[in-house]
Design a protein around this nucleic acid. Structure first.
Lengths: 253, 253
DNA sequence: CGCAGGTTTGAGAGGAGTCAAGGGTTGTGG
DNA sequence: CCACAACCCTTGACTCCTCTCAAACCTGCG
């Protein structure tokens, strides 16, 4: 069941190689990974809470959230994954994580069997290290979320999230915009606020001409102020990038 | 600079092998890791915020917190590490994490150079996978902390933390106790509360005869109620343990 | 056109923060 | 062995950020 190299896998390989060094054989072995495409409709939970999975997925297009919930059913989104991310790469070495995956928008995935990934990492140490590093970068984002949710007020917290997403989409800067098709309810689940309070917070950012959020877009009107309000420092997102130190330092505050 | 096998490393090897499979050569290579002991006094930051490190540490004795802080200087503890843990194993593949390490109590460490760990993982895939898995387990705890801080009230949040620590110390159960030498200030930094509110919350647990906290000990008076209040489910702590499914399931709620 | 889902706004309640003071413990030095 | 200092814990009163409940308003779509 070896599939021919697919463009999304090529893109992910390129992404991995920004942070980790692959030789030609690593790259070839990686691209030989079997992968099965899947379409997920918006607002579907495609991995339920606590479910065991035997494959990891790569986001080709769309937006995916990893979530948990308390006993009252209040959801908490713990991570957001954009195209090029693998939301549950961790499941390769720990198959039951107790969290679920939800499509925030219509999403295209590539499913890759755990078994194939394990075989690959056992034969190619550089690939194993790259996957390890991806998981560690995800954990660094998670750590920043603990800080954000725990020690920042609603306004700073919201601004910080917008900064993070803008940065990850490569859209950091004044008068830039990016696709972010989520409801205020979903934002609330990311920020550990209520939808009502998210609404008021976004209103404040809008009225102060800092950022404007719409149905499916976020427009940044004043990047510097957004960074200042959100206490944003992209170091935690860039830390894995020893390989191209010069890249994307241009739009920093 | 190869050191003779040290007891703490032996203990950590045993711990790794609960979750990951090592053969004799993996184990021998692991035990040959060079390690330098270090004593840290209580309440010292031994890795400052944003500092680059060239070694990872193993907690031999004591208690270590990984922390971040907002611009006001409010600290947020993102992880607590007990003897046998490696608080910054992630730094092997991502050397600048933007968080610091703090000794919550007098602590003995073993420092292991990144270079040695990298050499080991490149030659022994099983060890690389074990380290990857350890990082993923840490990330699972981190994800649970996002949920805890984001979606649980002070009482539940505090109870959940006590449950987690009891479980990790192997002291889960009614009328059991464990060493946990931290101040209410430190608890507040873990729970994203103020010390004053932590105090009131602990008072409530004490008065309801659920748990009693002292200077250096936590006594659990009613494990079942503590689990119920904290909505605690140890699945996220046990998920990495495919190798000994029967172990420590006895004290569950 | 009308419905469903999402957004916006208001009013009131409540959980946690802030400020401040007093009381305990622990450790140290005289 | 006592005394003191430092640190931590405890409690009260008040404030304020965020939640809750509720209603009205969009807006895209069947």
């Amino acid at each position: 069941m070896i599939a021919p190299p697919q463009p999304p896998l090529e893109r992910f390989a390129a992404r991995l190689m920004r942070r980790s060094r692959f030789d030609d054989r690593d790259r070839a072995a990686f691209l030989a990974l079997p992968a099965q495409p899947a379409q997920i409709r918006a607002h579907a939970d495609f991995v339920r809470l606590g479910e065991h999975v035997d494959h990891a997925c790569l986001v080709v297009d769309g937006l995916v959230a990893r979530f948990g919930q308390n006993e009252r059913g209040d959801r908490q989104i713990m991570a957001v994954h954009i195209p090029g991310d693998m939301p549950d790469l961790h499941s390769v070495v720990m198959s039951n994580t107790g969290s679920g995956l939800h499509a925030l928008a219509a999403t295209t995935l590539l499913r890759i069997p755990h078994e194939a990934i394990r075989d690959l990492t056992r034969s190619r140490p550089a690939v194993a290290e790259a996957f390890w590093r991806e998981c560690v970068v995800d954990a660094a984002v998670l750590a920043e979320w603990v800080l954000n949710v725990g020690r920042r007020r609603a306004l700073a917290r919201t601004a910080h999230l917008l900064c993070e997403m803008a940065w990850r989409y490569g859209a950091a800067g004044t008068d830039r915009a990016f696709q972010f098709p989520i409801t205020q309810e979903h934002l609330a689940d990311m920020l550990a606020l209520t939808a009502v309070h998210v609404n008021r917070t976004l209103k404040s950012l809008r009225e102060d001409r800092v950022a404007r959020t719409g149905r499916s877009m976020v427009q940044i009107l004043d990047w510097d102020r957004l960074v200042e309000i959100g206490e944003f420092d992209p170091a935690y997102l860039e830390a894995g990038r020893e390989l191209e130190p010069e890249a994307s330092a241009a739009c920093a505050a």
